[in-house]
Design a binder for these strands. Structure first.
Lengths: 208, 208
DNA sequence: TTCAATCTCGGTCTTAAGGCGGAGGAAGAA
DNA sequence: TTCTTCCTCCGCCTTAAGACCGAGATTGAA
């Protein structure tokens, strides 16, 4: 039996998930909570094998709850089950220690499978989310372009689109002289010799 | 009931598939054939909903049979089920009018699912094959660079690597003037304004 | 043979690109 | 406040880039 706790502030969602999970006799729903704070307490008290956690909740969000739980009970597998797959949500959740990341568009079967896999130590990442993660990873292995300032990065991406200095200056509403300055700084930071190589850099590093 | 015909010159394979399909009561195996010619005749006579067709057969291959059938009976869904996923096989099959394309490494369940989906109008393409198709599509939608001469393509790829005219001339053992000529021709053929855009073109079209 | 395409190279000219040095203003950290 | 970073912009200068025009050599097809 896999001991499970469901944390979601929408009762209908929570009850629905629980009802479905109870149709399979592998799951033992030991508790449920409607907020991050409540959920964290319950989890630390009951020490379930797996937790289904929503991210966006009224009292204390899922990320904080996840972080808090993982500090006290690192063996607990927390599966994030949310509607959002923005960079702002996914990354902090993974960093907080979430074990799997599913979207609410997932089928009941997929969720059940994810719980079983989590109990046996396998991660499950929603494809859409996986893509985001790959991107994050890429930007994680910070390359030369992490030394670029925001403005320089903007200019670099313009170069990556094949724009001339003139076009860039018009797009960014700055003087062409300024663009040239940025370009020069970019070239030296990326250690390339001209804008063409900079454009190649952009595409090789999939910045665009 | 979905009326199905199985065409495959290996009896064991054919009988095996039929035996499995008969375990599900949604399928009505109305006929079977061991060659493309025989299969085409049988299909036109019995007008099944779905046909499972092997590609490599002794008498008349599956592609010709498919083409022939589709001319007479375009509503018939022909599922190609073969061991090969070479470019030479896949593409002609699709062009001949094949509805789905599966490999024999597929599980029985997948095949059954594919038949049901075909009956309801949904295509199923084996992932490995889908990849090939994507590539074919890319080379099918012939882009601007197909008008380039070999030499020009060489130069273009150099540009895509961020090389200067000087470097290109040294690599290809030609004068820098010649390189400039090629570059000018490339730019006008690709309808871009400078080498940076040409480099972007290379990477966007994954020529490198 | 004639013709077309391709590769090669030349001259001339204009301009975008990029290096170098300097500098003022704004915002945030020490 | 002082210092630093960043964004902005200036002038001067050199050179690579690219357009335009022409042309000889080779090859293969008609």
């Amino acid at each position: 039996m896999i001991r499970v706790i469901v944390v979601d502030d929408h009762e209908i969602v929570r009850k629905g998930i629980i009802a479905y999970l109870q149709t399979e006799d592998e799951f033992d729903i030991v508790g449920e909570a409607s907020s991050g704070n409540e959920g964290a307490e319950l989890i630390l008290e009951l020490k379930p094998d797996v937790v289904l956690m929503d991210l966006m909740m009224e009292n204390g969000n899922g990320i904080e709850a996840t972080k808090h739980v993982m500090e006290q009970l690192p063996s607990c597998k927390i599966i994030i089950l949310t509607s959002y797959y923005d960079d702002e949500q996914v990354f902090p959740a993974i960093q907080a220690g979430a074990f799997s990341y599913l979207l609410k568009t997932s089928s009941a079967t997929e969720i059940a499978t994810a719980i079983k896999k989590a109990a046996s130590g396998q991660n499950v990442i929603e494809p859409k989310v996986a893509g985001k993660m790959m991107n994050s990873f890429r930007s994680e292995n910070k390359k030369a372009h992490d030394t670029l300032t925001e403005r320089e990065l903007e200019v670099l991406l313009c170069i990556g689109n094949g724009m001339t200095n003139q076009e860039i200056s018009e797009k960014l509403y700055i003087g062409i002289k300024t663009v040239k300055t940025h370009v020069s700084n970019i070239l030296s930071k990326l250690e390339v010799h001209d804008r063409t190589q900079a454009a190649v850099y952009v595409h090789r590093n999939q910045l665009l």
